[in-house]
Design a protein around this nucleic acid. Structure first.
Lengths: 188, 188
DNA sequence: ATATGCCGACCAACTAGTAGGTTTGCCTCT
DNA sequence: AGAGGCAAACCTACTAGTTGGTCGGCATAT
């Protein structure tokens, strides 16, 4: 299968970046995991930053799909928010990992430009979605409030993934989900 | 001055870790900044992990001092929380940096043990302080609620530092501070 | 016969860390 | 006051290993 190795390379780099950040993995690590030689990676991705950027791009696409699905299946803002929080809870429970883009944002200043652009897009898209999905009747009048609430909601959830990692517990994520619900209720 | 170089080394490693994480800086980087040779760093800190751990220890001490001072100067929970949030706002406005320990938590899995222990202590201490300082009349009955609120408050502020970095704006931090105040009000 | 996927061998640059020698300044004994 | 000792602070020069990346060649499948 032509696309198989490529996907495996993306899988490996995504996982390693989630746990160790951009500087915390090497072509050697990935090669070992996927079972090909280091040099062969360059056949699929010319440079490390290309592999990383493509990983983020794919990740972003997966998240976007989930967000679309949530909007299709749920019409109530509080239900949509609950499902949004479940993404974070699922990330922790599944791999015990952080959000890929939060992990990379921590290395922001030393991120290659292409990777940084992808990470930036993740944050922009996520907050835009929160504004659209949670505030059906948004208007220019309450726009600043909506932006602020979206900021706070994503902040508390992304921050909780840091907490959870330190605690080896999903408690902080549950607390963040409840806090996010409260913030929406206050403003919704 | 004997202690001077040592402090400069700690300054440099703290700053670099805030921006690039644990793997994103080297002895060569630090040496250049401080103006001594790479090998001379080993005279002060045997290994990179010792330098990093000591940086976190010092950082932790500085934060602890500020927290003590807040408790002395403010008696009202909401004022204390405002001052707590100001620490995060100050970190962004000053250096444009993240919380040192949040930056390191992103690299959690690949952190040397000594460093990880220090970072863990930061989180534990911060949340313990929030519980004590914001809930003067805590009891075993409302303990879980207090823990959850403390978790949510620190999550939203730490998460907002990630947002702020991406946005090159302190808006997310202001939003997080307001959200934190709201969470306290709800539970206080 | 040509493109795809992969590999072994290599590279320059970088990594943390070591060995051994020189300078500096302070303490103590005369 | 001056000499001797000593240790901290720093240096140059090195090690062994890793980093991302290159290149030529060898299969296989079309």
């Amino acid at each position: 299968m032509a696309n198989d190795t490529r996907q495996e390379l993306l899988d490996a780099s995504e996982l390693l970046m989630k746990f160790h950040g951009y500087h915390g993995f090497s072509y050697a690590n990935i090669a070992e995991r996927v079972g090909i030689k280091k040099a062969s990676i360059h056949h699929h991705f010319a440079a490390k930053c290309d592999l990383a950027a493509e990983s983020v791009r794919r990740y972003r696409g997966q998240i976007r799909e989930i967000l679309d699905q949530i909007c299709e299946e749920e019409s109530e803002p509080q239900d949509r928010l609950r499902r949004f929080a479940d993404i974070f809870l699922g990330a922790y429970r599944g791999e015990g990992s952080m959000c890929l883009c939060a992990a990379l944002t921590a290395d922001w200043e030393s991120l290659p430009e292409g990777v940084r652009d992808e990470v930036q897009s993740y944050w922009d898209e996520s907050r835009a979605w929160l504004g659209d999905a949670l505030f059906p009747n948004r208007s220019s009048a309450n726009e600043p409030r909506i932006t602020s609430t979206a900021n706070a909601i994503i902040s508390v959830l992304e921050g909780a993934l840091l907490c959870a990692r330190v605690d080896s517990s999903d408690q902080a994520l549950k607390d963040a989900a409840n806090a996010a619900a409260l913030l929406l209720k206050q403003d919704g």
